[in-house]
Design a protein around this nucleic acid. Structure first.
Ligand SMILES: [Mn+2]
Ligand SMILES: [Mn+2]
Ligand SMILES: [Mn+2]
Ligand SMILES: [Mn+2]
Lengths: 219, 219
DNA sequence: ATATATTTTTAGACTAACCTAAAAATATAT
DNA sequence: ATATATTTTTAGGTTAGTCTAAAAATATAT
């Protein structure tokens, strides 16, 4: 059984590995967890002791299979709770993260399995991120950043890269939501902005937005 | 904002005060929390510092109004989560306590208010205990231990005193549940056992059970 | 290749929440 | 009333998780 703090480290390493492969640096972890590198070194030693990570001094850290499974289970809980908050308790997608950050640490296998069933086995969380199954496997879908699409390409909005409240609320204001069909009408090379068609209307989105929105291209 | 540990102390003092009025002893708290008296003294000082309790050395501890409100809010969360687990996630009434013990510490006013609404504002938890409202008030109902009823008195089962898994599962086995009508047929002075009528059948219950079951008498 | 900058680890401290053992206060029994 | 028992507090330690500052290792730039 892991402490809340240990779980937060494990989850963070998992997310960093998804982005940057093996050998996650002390500093990278410290930055994500808003703590100091020296604290990370301490914790890393403990996690290595517990066979969650492999660790060679100065070489960064990598999750073991056991560590990966543990991490996936925490992520599974986090995302299932997010679905619960949005689907059942009227939270909006920009409000769920902080609470899920707490709920993910509740220890009860029955709770999480029953929650999964109650929510009818959702496959993705409110931000479009996949929910790992009990074994820790998660299905990856083919998705591309909106900014990488070419003119006239069409797709469906399936996720966000940055899921900060600010970004999500901004998307709300623009009427952008998961499941919406988007067509790239025009790309502006000067500032990287795009003119897109959505809900039959055309609007312009900045490069900043376009490089944070995931699109599943229509074949 | 209080730590999980502080919250557990506050809640425990609250429950003890309900049973024994003011001036809760260090030892009583230690026993309930399964910790040492010296640890309790430490924590009591901190809580007194934070104006949760009033404390005079060797005189025991009493919740302030602020302390009472804080406690009631924790109890509110505990009981609402218990209702959720039973009503929505197929937990039985003997399985919920341990999980609610964790869930009660989640910090999010919106979460608990939405949960309350989602559950349609329940008034009692699965054990018949009242759920405090947002202000910390809880409605008390007139209830008596089954063991105090006289022959031929009739009432409805509305709660349990001991809510240990063992007792609750035993009640399940006997077919006793909240809401069941019970009539005292006969009292056995020798061992304090009772013959009762329930669901049209008569059965005998030991004194141990009769003094852990709350009945609301039919006027 | 060497100097400089950056990253990582170590050393030493702090706080929260525990503990044991001893001392002090209070309660109980004769 | 005094002696004894019990309860409560104090004193001093431990562990988890954090911090700052300094030392060591590694990376980068000339
Ligand atoms: Mn968390
Ligand atoms: Mn999410
Ligand atoms: Mn608790
Ligand atoms: Mn209960």
């Amino acid at each position: 059984m892991f402490s809340q703090s240990e779980e937060n480290y494990i989850k963070t390493i998992y997310h960093l590995e998804a982005d940057f492969k093996k050998g996650i640096s002390t500093n990278a972890i410290a930055k994500k967890l808003d703590t100091k590198a020296s604290s990370v070194t301490d914790m890393i030693k403990k996690l290595s002791e517990k066979d969650v990570v492999t660790y060679k001094k100065y070489q960064g850290v990598t999750l073991t299979d056991f560590g990966k499974k543990t991490a996936a289970n925490i992520v599974r809980k986090h995302r299932l709770w997010e679905v619960f908050l949005v689907d059942k308790l009227n939270f909006s997608w920009d409000e769920v993260h902080e609470v899920a950050e707490q709920l993910e640490h509740i220890k009860s296998p029955k709770l999480i399995n029953e929650l999964d069933a109650f929510l009818e086995y959702p496959k993705r969380d409110p931000h479009g991120d996949p929910i790992p199954d009990k074994e820790g496997n998660l299905q990856i879908i083919e998705k591309s950043l909106l900014s990488t699409l070419k003119e006239n390409e069409i797709g469906v909005c399936v996720g966000v890269d940055d899921s900060s409240s600010e970004f999500l609320r901004f998307l709300d204001k623009q009427g952008v939501a998961l499941g919406k069909q988007i067509k790239v009408v025009e790309k502006e090379p000067f500032d990287g902005s795009l003119v897109i068609e959505m809900d039959g209307k055309t609007l312009s989105v900045s490069n900043k937005i376009a490089s944070n929105l995931y699109i599943q291209k229509s074949r």
